[in-house]
Design a protein around this nucleic acid. Structure first.
Lengths: 243, 243
DNA sequence: TTTAAATGTCTATTGATATAGACAACTATA
DNA sequence: TATAGTTGTCTATATCAATAGACATTTAAA
């Protein structure tokens, strides 16, 4: 937690410090007291003025992560970073499972379109084959965790948007459409700064980092049933791959 | 590419714009011309002053991604991203394989120490058990791709630093020490802004993103032989998980 | 009821960030 | 060889970010 902050990088010190404290909270660094260290201590640790620390804490309070109480200290309200296992049987809702009380998947938009080169390659379809596209946001305890664009072969899964809207889960939607089981074939992971669409969908602030996955699910015969590009708030999620 | 930048968020406009342009370059948005659009056009797209765009381009030029030529425009110098497959048989050097001409692993520092709680847990050792620690940097075609801290059980792999320095590869070093095969047991992936140590080791500029993996390799009996924390430049690497 | 420790508020100053406009210098091309 | 289009440089101004110090207010514990 010591490592210094960096100046003149285009990222304000108060934001760097806010990010570091958020990360320390989610790593459990302050679990003993349930409080963030006093402002004067943090200021010394980071080598900055107390007012700069106050700006960082104000930002975290705005996010609902901490609550400053005059005379007592700064209390931790919520500590996050969901662990998302990636296996052959990766399931978003079940994967998060007990880490959050309420998991929801919301359908933002959908439509039928023609597979472009990328979608066709992953779904092993002809270029221009009809596919169902869905834009979704997934939330844990009402906080957005990821937003995704998913494509499905239109001939098999025309009812996907309706099923997803009803069940709020890909797994249950597949089941509704007669596909009782599926497996994760490939997952590609990169990271980038959140773009404007991410900021809006995931309720982030500029400079935030998103983990981006491109994933293919297949049925038990190995036929692709879904290709999805998902964008996760890096502050709220980590991935674990068990081999 | 249109979406607006955001003000008063602790992230300077020039940095938001630099990040967006970098992303657009690696997505191939300017492949037709091999050049970034003129400063005046970018300024209008982002809704900022031309001088702000110039600051962003100066940062990208510093990274070696673009080169501005008076009278002509701003040329794209480099757009790359190595793919790093993560499987049960993950090998760094072989994994990058044909994507780069020359792969090298450099030993920066090493020593014997006592396992702390984290290292002991992953390597399934007693707290305080002796371990070998190695700090390494891996380069593809002389560009740093990742830096890592790795721990090995000291009783089995006391010769690791010497073997790694000679072979420049974990796989070959293990082979030298009598371990002809090993498998990847667990990989955890997160992302964060590069810290000062990353900037130096990976030759990055402040604000850059690193993908962080925590990984355990075991021998064929499932006994942990290595625990490593690696930090990859997100601009240069992506991961692929095949199940 | 003190007192120590913590957050809250205020003023002042400096440096980084962003805007605005004008013009110079260079390149490619008509 | 003009000329349009582009990057480079300069001055000036306004706002945000960060530092510095002083003191008020609240809480919990001695």
């Amino acid at each position: 937690m010591a490592g210094q902050v960096q100046r003149q990088t285009g990222v304000a010190l108060w934001r760097q410090i806010a990010d570091r404290i958020r990360q320390a909270i989610s790593a459990g660094a302050y679990d003993e007291t349930g409080m963030v260290p006093p402002e004067t201590v943090l200021a010394q640790q980071f080598g900055v003025n107390r007012h700069t620390v106050r700006s960082a804490i104000a930002a975290l309070a705005q996010e609902g992560i901490v609550r400053a109480v005059q005379g007592r200290g700064t209390l931790i309200e919520r500590k996050e970073r969901l662990n998302f296992p990636i296996t052959r049987r990766t399931r978003f809702t079940a994967g998060i499972g007990e880490q959050a009380r309420a998991m929801r998947g919301l359908l933002l938009d959908h439509g039928e379109e023609r597979a472009d080169e990328e979608v066709a390659r992953w779904l092993k379809l002809r270029l221009g084959a009809p596919v169902i596209r869905m834009e979704t946001v997934r939330k844990a305890d009402d906080r957005p965790v990821s937003c995704a664009t998913a494509w499905f072969p239109a001939d098999r899964f025309a009812g996907m948007p309706a099923a997803y809207e009803k069940t709020e889960s890909i797994t249950r939607a597949f089941a509704d459409l007669g596909l009782s089981d599926y497996v994760r074939a490939t997952t590609q992971i990169t990271a980038a700064h959140a773009d404007a669409a991410d900021l809006a969908a995931l309720e982030l602030t500029p400079g935030a980092i998103v983990l981006i996955t491109k994933a293919v699910n297949t049925d038990l015969e190995g036929v692709p049933v879904q290709y999805a590009i998902s964008r996760f708030s890096a502050d709220r999620v980590q991935f674990t791959i068990e081999n």
